[in-house]
Design a protein around this nucleic acid. Structure first.
Lengths: 207, 207
DNA sequence: TAAAAATGTGAGCAACTCTTCACATTTTCT
DNA sequence: AGAAAATGTGAAGAGTTGCTCACATTTTTA
């Protein structure tokens, strides 16, 4: 359902071939995401994941060469989903307030399945080089997205200054969403309204 | 140097009495903060801390009954320092832009020693009840601080709506600072300027 | 249907974790 | 100075973790 962005570096040990094993891998990835979201990196133990997935620890290691490759698989999937959601909201033509409202709604939606996952993937879980790279395809597309939005409302073409502004507002949004998720208050409408106002004000200001 | 906010729950096992042992405890706490900031909760092992502090593991357990009590000591110290810094910046009389500038400067300063510490303490490290409590003295003072700032510029007295707004802008600032710290770019002046603009715009808007 | 390939299992090893405790050293007290 | 108190040490026990491997079961192939 989601567009793959880049080939995974630490590939799977063995590609599942039959429907049964593909289901097994799917179950493992989902169990991993659940554990990561609910209990953080320190709760992310291979035995725990296998237990929650209802498969033996041996099955997990049939397809994932080590713990890190499993995190990478989860991260890969999550980033794909995030980008997909974001691509749907574009600034063209929309007034700042409306763009902000749609963006916040998309962000909230992206965090409603595994509220803690994004934060844990970003902050706690170790990542392979591919994802630490500030010039990774994902980082570039993500940053450009915000820089473009800022440039649109500043009525200029994206430049270095707008990249700084884009990253800043992106980090601010991230902070609000992430702290709301931590308190289990991601659906707080009053909070969402204030966040929309914050974004709209910042973008609307013709600096 | 810092005002104690609340008595610690999980006290020390034994109070250091001589100058030598007080220095030992100090070294351990600092080593702990360093490890927590640099390597996160998963790197925070008692043996590692003792090694970095240059004392034996036995010495650590002479004063701290367990690992958690050491985290609590570090957290306690960090919260004291944060509040102390924040108390110095008040909104009274200052135009929004100037208040925002001082606030950002204070936040940057508070994160320049152990850039990752705040985030790890908030998100990764387990905490005793005292600190998880959303009605803890710290949380209340922290929230009131922002609610007051919002109310000041909205020219009304703090109420429930301003608490929501206060928390939102606080979380936004937190996100920017925290993501900058993660990239090692907490001193980026361009970023700081944009953050100041964001805060000033939001506070200046008479909703 | 029989062989081959794919998939699933879980006891257990090596490495690491937190913590204790019997003991050695240093400082303070009388 | 000698005794008592405070401080410092690190080997080792009990528990947990990532991961392997010899083997059992299921599915596909011929």
């Amino acid at each position: 359902m989601s567009t793959r962005i880049a080939k995974q570096r630490s590939a799977m040990r063995k590609e599942p071939q039959q429907a049964r094993s593909r289901a097994t891998v799917e179950t493992i990835v989902q169990a991993g995401a659940r554990v990561l979201s609910d209990e953080g990196w320190s709760g992310f133990t291979t035995n725990r994941i296998a237990e929650l997935a209802g498969v033996s620890i041996g099955s997990l290691y049939q397809y994932f060469p080590d713990k890190l490759s499993l995190v990478d698989a989860i991260r890969h999937r999550h980033l794909d989903d995030s980008i997909t959601v974001m691509r749907k909201v574009r600034a063209d033509g929309l007034p700042p307030a409306e763009f902000a409202a749609q963006l916040v709604q998309a962000m909230v939606a992206a965090h409603s399945v595994y509220p803690g996952l994004h934060r844990v993937l970003l902050d706690e879980a170790p990542s392979s080089e591919e994802y630490r790279d500030p010039n990774s395809e994902f980082e570039i597309e993500y940053l450009s997205y915000y820089a473009e939005a800022v440039a649109t409302y500043r009525k200029r073409s994206p430049n270095a200054a707008y990249h700084v502004a884009g990253r800043m507002i992106s980090d601010a949004i991230d902070g609000v969403i992430h702290n709301a998720a931590r308190r289990g208050a991601i659906d707080d409408l009053a909070m969402q309204r204030e966040l929309v106002r914050l974004i709209a004000l910042y973008l609307g200001e013709t600096g």
